[in-house]
């Protein structure tokens, strides 16, 4: 037990940035917009979170700034994909390149600097439970917010009118349009909100997780989140499960490396990527060849009002 509990607690911590990104992408994709720029947006979020905390000394403002900058950056994706009906796959890749470039150009002077960052706060009462306490309730505030966020996103999607509009626009934009919903407006809203969450996931890496800026520090987490959306079949609750699974692999891998092992580091570091492929294969085999349950039917397709097919 003494061995497993710290690994599980680390799994939750490592899984949290991926969870934010996955929740954000679920919101975006549910409205029919595919955003493959997660990796770039997370990097921008990580940089903004770091630099604002560095300058103001306040992790709070760092995280808030990262959220809004993430939204602002996603305006580009929204404008190109929604208003100009651009190819969403290519546009996402462009976002990744742009975000990677901007973050590493801006961050070049800050490599090695550290910030105070956010510290863990044990929740009184809950944290004294055996196992569950130290694993889930002795974390930092952002982890607690992510627990709430899972339910908030789920509630928003399935229990509110706004969520219904998002799902309608993502599944059948023509019917939504006929019902008087502005497809563009709803897609803009969900793309921007989702982008904010993704960016927040990136900021978690600097402000909470590592307390410093490292070039390309997301290391594929954005792409893993894209894969997790499919694993989660667009369901926020399953997204949490998937994120902690990946956090667990990362924590375990770091634990093994720290424990001194003969297995070379590069091979251990492959684990999350191989797991991503394995998870996708398993989920695809189970779902069969047809359209996946929960996948928005109009995902990745631009909407042109006068096209009636």
């Amino acid at each position: 037990m003494e061995l497993i509990v710290p690994i599980l607690a680390a799994a939750v911590r490592s899984g949290t940035p991926i969870l934010y990104a996955t929740l954000g992408e679920i919101m975006t994709e549910k409205s029919g917009v595919l955003n493959l720029g997660l990796e770039g947006i997370m990097l921008i979020g990580a940089y903004v979170g770091f630099i604002v905390t560095y300058n103001t000394g306040s992790p709070f403002w760092g995280l808030v700034a990262a959220f809004f900058v993430g939204m602002a950056v996603n305006v580009v994706h929204a404008f190109l994909c929604i208003s100009l009906k651009a190819n969403q796959v290519i546009c996402g890749l462009a976002m990744t390149m742009f975000g990677t470039g901007v973050s590493s150009l801006l961050g070049r002077g800050y490599v090695g600097e550290t910030i105070a960052g956010l510290q863990a706060v044990a929740l009184p009462g809950l944290s004294s439970f055996p196992v569950v306490g130290p694993v889930f309730f002795s974390q930092d505030v952002m982890v607690y917010i992510s627990y709430l966020l899972v339910f908030v996103v789920w509630f928003l999607m399935y229990k509110t009118k706004f969520g219904l509009m998002i799902r309608a626009v993502g599944d059948s934009p023509l019917s939504a349009e006929a019902a008087g919903i502005s497809v563009s407006a709803v897609r803009y809203a969900s793309t921007l909100l989702g982008g904010g969450l993704v960016s927040l996931g990136g900021a978690y890496l600097t402000v909470v997780y590592s307390h410093m800026w490292v070039d390309l520090m997301t290391a594929g987490r954005g792409w893993i989140a894209v894969a997790l959306v499919i694993f989660a079949i667009w369901n926020p609750l399953r997204a949490a499960l998937g994120s902690y699974l990946f956090g667990g692999v990362e924590a375990l891998q770091m634990r093994i490396q720290a424990g001194g092992t003969t297995v070379p580091a590069p091979l251990l570091m492959m684990l999350p990527y191989i797991l991503t492929i394995a998870v996708l294969v398993v989920i695809s085999v189970f779902k069969g060849r047809g359209r996946m349950l929960g996948a928005p039917s109009a995902l990745g397709l631009p909407f042109y009002r006068e096209e009636r097919e």
Binding site: A94, M97, F98, T100, G101, L105, R108, D215
Partner: peptide
């Protein structure tokens, strides 16, 4: 400047 400046232009 880091090589990543080129990535900004590419994006």
């Amino acid at each position: 400047l880091p090589l990543s400046s080129v990535q900004i232009l590419q994006g």
